[in-house]
Design a binder for these strands. Sequence first.
DNA 1: TGGAGCAATG
Length: 688
Amino acid sequence: MRSRIVRDAVVYRDHVQAIKSGFASTIFTCNQLIHIYSNHGLFQDAHKLFDEISHPNVFSWNALIRAYIKAHNLRQARAVFDSASNKDLVSYNSMLSAYVGADGYETEALDLFARMQSERDTIGIDEFTLTTMLNFTAKLRVVCYGKQMHSYMVKTASDLSKFASSSLINMYSKCGLFREACNVLSGCDGVVDLVSKNAMVAACCREGEMDMALNVFWKNSELNDTVSWNTLIAGYAQNGYMDKALALFVEMTERGIRHDEHTLASVLSACSNLKCLKLGKCIHAWVLKNDFSSNQFISSGIVDLYCKCGNIRYAESVYEGIGIKSQFEVASLIVGYSSQGDMTKAQRLFDTLSERNYVVWTALCSGYAKLQQCEEVFKLFREFIITEALIPDAMIIISVLGACATQAILCLGKQIHTYILKMRLNMDKKLLSAMVDMYSKCGNIMYAEKSYQLMTDKDRDAILYNVMIAGYAHHGFENKAIQLFQDMLKKRVKPDAVTFVALLSACRHRGLVEQGEKFFISMKEDYNVLPEVYHYACMVDMYGRANQVEKALEFMRKIPIQIDATIWGAFVNACQINKNTSLVNKAEEELLKIGADNGSRFVQLANIYAAEGKWDEMGRIRKKMRVKEAKKLVGCSWIYVDNGTHAFTSGDTSHAKADAIYSTLMCLNGKELKQLHEIGGDVFVDIF
DNA sequence: TGGAGCAATG
């Protein structure tokens, strides 16, 4: 590809020589050649040719400005713009569009737009300016400015072009006003061009309205191009329908529609998520054959594919082969290391970077958060605030809120909430869901509820409903959980597997067996959500807690999937609650058969026998536990004081202030503790 | 002779 460009450019250079040596060169041909040079990446030649024009006209100046914009040299483009003796609205629009398209030039874009407006008599604005500014508001997600643009366009009748409709659909969709985007489309009376149609498909995908996306896609399908197919494939992949994304890719190929790097990036993402190494490798081979490796979306997608398929060595070798590495490729490998639990390698890779963007910070932060290494998350977040001149984005904050939830550190969670408000960070659905989850897991259901209510009815998605339903369930408000589920259905939000785990969990804690059974049947029959391990385990646990251990066993006999240690664990628990040693033998056999090495299960079994006074049986289990070297994770409690977590296990004396803690506890009899609880006192206040 | 719109990565 590159050699062809250079070869063409040499032809054009010879052409210029010919013009210079005999043919009359007009300013028109020189201007055209500046464009040709810059289109072929020969920016210095373009400038040299410009310098040779004795009296450059406005077209010459604009061609040179475009050349520097194409070279991504906005400073030089602006210098030419400022020094140009001839400027018109095209010069301004070119410069404005360049600022809007680049990152970090928001102020310059706004200043230039303000200048164009204030000098209305000499410069002014036209429909090119308006579509560019719609793009700007879409990028910044500032819907109030977008609406002002729209109003002005209606007033000046410049909202009717195909450029206007696609830009408006795009702006409303990216600003989260899906209905308004639909209104723009219906305002076109069904006559839309391909770009507007594609923008609408993208808007539906962004909203998760895949049926609607499919309808728009297939209407006037003769118009569809590679972008249309790419949009829909990416939409399916982003909404979790990986198999549909792959099926569409197959159909696209069968129909002979050309695919490009966008297509491959989405297909790679679908392969990674499905852990479909076979197809992923085919795509990798295709990429190598067609020389697409230099595309950072694709190379990071390939690294991600091998990481998600568990082949870290291969991912590393692909990564090493990338010449100039972008931060997305680094992030893919950091996420890969994190998913393997190898935070040492993840941190080492992060430390080698001289510049870090949001992506790599988030990758490392979420890696620590997923492994529940919460102190590291907090440390990293502090480092981010101190070392980066950036406002943290939602993804980083979500990881920090997740760490607060894991550790149940309410005070820190509140600090993060305050920080979000202080920095005026956009509270989107994902961030708000993380906040609701944090408050709920930190024990403050009232704040969780208040946060949940910040999002209007129509903007609540399944994730937000799920965290609130789970919150109610864990705090013992089963009726509220069920009510919210009804509300979710009324608002036409489709429940998923997580919703039903929360609902079944609510039922098992309150002994609502009938209601739980109804949910269990309904999830598959009415909502097409197939039960997974956790749903089965919840049901077994529910029967156990309701003293219906025989029913639990009957239920287990009908489970169509492989019964794993989680479900057997729930059954052992049921036996323990019901003091049923006759059925526990069966569970013991199965647990040993599937090679469960979780010590908790053995301790549970031993305890059941001990409770029945069957000491021989108990001794036998303990012995098995020793032979298998099964270790039970020790349960612990912790308290967060002065930026530090203090964890305690039963009989633990390892804490530096253990003596003081124990002597204080000794002094506190039941009555004193009760008084402390009544006045809301903290036992540890004077110790730390 | 020139300037504007749709799709991809944590």
